[in-house]
Write a protein that binds this DNA or RNA. Sequence first.
RNA 1: GCAGAUGUGCCCGAGUGGAUAAGGGGCUGGUCUUAGGAGUCAGUGCUUAGUGCAUCGUCGGUUCAAAUCCGACCAUCUGUACCA
Length: 846
Amino acid sequence: MPAENAAIDHGANPEEWTDKNIAAMKRQQKQIGLSYDWTREIYSHNPNYYKWDQWFFLEMLEKGLAYRRESYVNWCPECSTVLANEQAQGGRCWRCNSIVEQKFLSQWFLKIREYAEELLEGLNQVEWPEKVKIMQRNWIGRSEGTIIKFPIVGEERTIDIFTTRPDTIFGVTYAIFAIEHPWVRQWVKGTKYEKEYETLYDEVMKQDKYERTAIDVEKKGMFIGKYAVNPLTKEEVPIYCANFIIFEYGAGAVMAVPAHDQRDFEFAKEYDLPIKVVIQPYDYELNVEKMTRAYESDGVLTNSGEFNGMGNRNAIDAITEKLEELGMGSATINYKLRDWGISRQRYWGCPIPIIYCKECGVVPVPYEDLPVHLPKDVQFTGSGNPLHTSKSFVNTTCPKCKNPAKRETDTMDTFIDSSWYFFAFCDPPSMESELPYSKEIVNYWGNVDQYIGGIEHAVMHLIYARFFTKISRDLGLHNHDEPFQRLLTQGMINKAHPYCPECDRFAMKAEMYDERCKLCNTRYALKSVKMSKSYGNTVDPNQIIEKYGADAARFFILFGASPKSSLEWSEEGVGFASKFIKNTYELLIDPPFKIRKEETVRDNLIQYYLHKSIEEVTTSLERIEIRDAVNHIIQFSSEFKKYKEEGVNKDIFNECKEKLTLLIHPIIPHLTEEIWAQFGNKKYASLEAWPKLNSNLLTKENEFKWNLMNAIIEDIKNIQNLLNKSSLDEIQIFIASEWKYEFYKILMKLLKETRNQGVIMKEVMKKPTFKKHGKFISQTVNDVLKNIGKFPDYWLGSEKEFEFFEDIKSILSDKFDAKINVSKEDDSKEKKASNAFPGRPSLLLS
RNA sequence: GCAGAUGUGCCCGAGUGGAUAAGGGGCUGGUCUUAGGAGUCAGUGCUUAGUGCAUCGUCGGUUCAAAUCCGACCAUCUGUACCA
């Protein structure tokens, strides 16, 4: 539709417009380094593709899965054109501001309902987010109920109403038809009700479809002079029509039980209709006069003839059986899912291969005449379907009787194109072949292992594609039951956009730079809304690519994006992307100042952190948590930089820089290829194996040491800050006394058995050497119990902790430019020293 | 209306029972520089020799312990069948 709008608005040729946009997007995707296999590129507007849309349609027509019936569309009387829902925001036409009406047109439908049960069942075979499965289940909306036939007084036919509450059938006091139900118009024609009906009809047809069913919208209806017969009581009940019944749901009519349905109750009060209680609650008695709302819960049947005294749950089955005996109803399953209307009164799409002949009626185009080409000689006037303006297209001959005939001018919903494209990618379609794609190839590649799409597709596209997969399987095209095995629904990208609070609508693309709403002249406010072509609030990454380069744009998008959650677009931080890339280049290419031969604890630690980062980046990428992966890379880069400045061991430094290069390669591919070549590699980085994880390095000891070093640095910084000292002379580190380690060990062991402070104290104090430390111990036990998780169940011994600090002495002294003195608590007379604890030495700064 | 989701510091955002609420941006300051930029170090709720307190939309509950679990409410976003 954007292509067609461009044609109407700027006289562009939709085909050129589309090709131009594809070319631009393709260039951009290549620039940013997306690795698509372009040999498999397909275009849905290429006749070799849409030929197969038409083929699918004919196959479905043959199998009775495609049919034609009347359905309504949004209609602008001024432009005499069909409007999409989004072009009819607030019930007004987006071009001319006229009030949008509902108009009935004969349209083509696909029987997706035939597959409702399988579509429901198939959800158990796929690994999809639970929320999407829930949305699809609700969309399909399976409900078990009963069809009840209500004869119409004075007519042969019956209205077959679906209800989940046949137990309330004795309480039916009227019936309601959808106002647009074709029978209603027939009935009122030429009667005293006709005028009132037409007025109401016009009014309702201007209401939004879902606005009509909203609970707080005024319920409007009228008696239409007809009666229906309750098949069990033989009572005649009046038939009303009303705005809150929708023709397309169920039979387009309902039986009304005001005593036990809130909506029916309100309507009955409004129009003064009788209310009949047929279910009595277990613990009190309903009184019709005093009821202020419907009783919708369970109870015992009353006023229900032979079913009196029965619990209403059991009565559901009993009454259904009775109706079956009488031939007046049956148990059934109803789905909210509606058949898929595929007709679009637009030019830019795939023509529906149908010919209308005066003699032969509706005639499908023979397979050998496919494709029906979309003609080029059309005019875009903005009024009606442009296809009508192509005489060469519309006028044809009937394939059966060869007399002049007319072509169907509706085109197909573009969701058809996207319902099988994933199979077309496996084997790109061609004009010559017998079938849309080869079974062997699609069976080999399919189904799609991992599908990624916006959450806005959760129901429509993702159900249509599943439906098509089942259809094409049944046509013998492949063996897959489901198109997409795993699904990731990315969040929407939202952006603030002009919004008129008065009309409750967003500015369309053409008005987005206006200050005031063109309908009511209210000043636009800003409100967040998803990015979309029709609003024109999309972002063109070109500007970013041009200013910062393709790698920076890619990095920025990947770091900013958290695929599963939605995102408010902002370009803040794009500068960081380019800075980071520049710094990374220097980090990897510039040689270190100081190279050591010997291997120190510092080298071990950075190696530990490297492998920990490999692990984290790898798992994050596997889970498609790209932002987390980038984050871990940034964190490692920053640690690696510190390491490099402190002086390095050559081998370990080289390991780090090579593995880091490969880790960022997917994020900034172009630059890392350059770096990789500068390292002297002959092979592309993209062809290298992913860095291997050495899990032997990921020990608890290494983790503990890594954290300990960082904690000590943090602590020293904190204290230095508090002291407000710009420089330090000496840092004294005191390691806790031997007995504290022993105590900690006992305490941790006890904690696994009990959390009772008394018991713990008693146990601990059994050791005589602890007696003199009683106060410290009882305080510590209290602390630990208050916050158990704060204390690790891993610790070094007193000696090892001492050695560790001796080892990192030089790092600390370089970092703080101070003398470092490591000693044991027992060997010091400083008061501070006694604060030392296993894993947390005390510090004295001067 | 119905259905699905979300709400974390100035901003983006990680975090589903215990670790200082990760990381980044922005802002402020130090340092380097003739200057700017870039780099770098630090600060960015209150308090404080490394502690303690407060805080994760709001209110209430469960728990030794809650951003995390439960309940209610509020706000925002998406879909609602012709935008794709």
